[in-house]
Amino acid sequence: MTRQVEAHHYCGHQNEDMRQCLIYDSPDADARLIGLEYIVSENLFLGLPDEEKPLWHSHEYEIKSGVLFMPGVPGPIERHDLEKVAKTYGKVFHFWQVDKGNNLPLGLPQIMMALTSDGQLDEDFLRGVEKRYGISVNKERENRAHITGPTHGIHPLANGGGKGLITELREVDCKPTDSVPRVFV
């Protein structure tokens, strides 16, 4: 969790309980599409199989702390939507590790987690974002004091169950095996 990236999410609703988002590395016309996120309500999250839950992260801290914001949307409207988002869970995959300096999307998808408490975010990194967007995270934090997270609290299996998650590639035989011509027989 020491590698942190600024992400710009462009979201559409599937219905009231689910959104799907494209994630870009900037808000500009030449932005790189680096990943995607699915966001579900607490209700849908609780219905997920237990082995699925660790792949999802809670949003409460990101919102209450002010680090998540909607550029250009006035505070009152923004907070109205964030009251809902604070109760949700998200599942994020990044396919392009731009923070590693990769100029092409190399390797495997990475499963991303979100911030869950103070001290996890690189302060210098945050100051840079505040300056560019003319916002103050600490001030916004006070405006969001009334916002509450999931009704049943953050599920203990969410957020990787507190562990890191890594993706690995496994070679498998094509099925049915004999249908593929073997050049090196």
Binding site: M1, T2, G119, Q120, L121, N159, I166, T167
Partner: peptide, 14 residues
């Protein structure tokens, strides 16, 4: 693709 559990590098407890 498999997703497995690993140790994390942290700045603060997670």
């Amino acid at each position: 693709i498999d997703i497995n559990v690993t140790d994390m590098k942290l700045r603060a407890p997670f």
